[in-house]
């Protein structure tokens, strides 16, 4: 526990001094703003480009605010997650590859505290980024497309947060088992896609599948997700996160021999 806090402080300093604490939230805010803004100005953009043939009638249905927020989630699910993976792929693998980890590994280091401190810091920054992104998106959606109840948006964000924590645990395990950052990113990306793909293809009745969490989050906007499905999926996600903690700490310890001496 003591080691957890000293290592967390180190992670915090790292994230401040390499400016991740600024640019990752900035990207999410940008994603949140961009989606409603481009949608709002889309008719004007098409018109000004003069691309429409004579006589054609332009009919773009105005999206509902709920659809707009769903589109923002879509952006986070693709570009947002990609940014997080690229930002944190080297968290453990990179330290080992460069040899900076060596001077920690020769000490009586608790690898559980080591892994958890890294997951905690990466998760805090990811969650803050996702929340700020959603809030920015919510604000512009409200300006351009109308109101959604704030409580619904908060429920959506809360549910989506569990998904983010799960993805970060997955990413850090990938970093713990990989020989370098690129490899870690590849493992994390492919696992991430695989989860969504299997859930999409075969998971119609898998109500407890953590892959459904983003979808459950969106269902808050138009009513409420099926309660047993939601809590089942969250429960399984939490169990998987705990399992990933164990695997990550174990892999980090096992791979300490691979650090550059």
């Amino acid at each position: 526990m003591k080691q957890f806090f000293m290592l967390l402080k180190k992670e915090q300093l790292e994230n401040i001094r390499n400016y991740k604490i600024y640019w990752i939230p900035a990207i999410f805010i940008l994603l949140g703003i961009l989606e409603p803004t481009t949608n709002y100005f889309l008719p004007q953009i098409i018109e000004s480009s003069g691309g429409l043939p004579e006589g054609a009638v332009l009919e773009i249905p105005t999206p509902t605010p709920e659809q707009m927020l769903a589109a923002i989630v879509e952006q986070f699910q693709t570009i947002g997650i990609a940014v997080l993976i690229l930002a944190y792929m080297g968290t453990i693998a990179g330290e080992r590859k460069s040899g900076t980890a060596t001077l920690l590994y020769v000490r009586p280091l608790s690898f559980r505290a080591y892994f958890l401190s890294k997951w905690t810091m990466a998760s805090v920054i990811s969650l803050v980024s996702v929340w700020l992104g959603f809030l920015a998106g919510y604000y512009y959606t409200y300006l351009f497309f109308g109101e959604v109840e704030l409580i619904k948006v908060l429920q959506m964000m809360g549910t989506y947060s569990v998904w983010v924590l799960f993805i970060m645990a997955l990413l850090l395990v990938a970093s713990a088992i990989s020989p370098n950052s690129g490899f870690a990113a590849a493992i994390a990306f492919s696992t991430y896609l695989l989860i969504q793909l299997t859930d999409g293809l075969f998971g119609l009745n898998w109500t407890f599948s953590p892959g459904k969490i983003p979808q459950y989050g969106l269902e808050w906007l138009i009513g409420a997700p099926d309660s047993s499905g939601l809590w089942g999926a969250i429960g399984i996600a939490v169990l998987l996160i705990l399992l990933l903690f164990a695997i990550g700490s174990w892999a980090a310890q096992r791979n300490k021999a691979k650090t550059k001496v």
Binding site: Y19, Y22, W23, A26, I27, L30
Partner: peptide, 8 residues
């Protein structure tokens, strides 16, 4: 916006 992010 993108300029500063690129720099970081």
């Amino acid at each position: 916006i993108l300029g500063p992010i690129l720099y970081f």
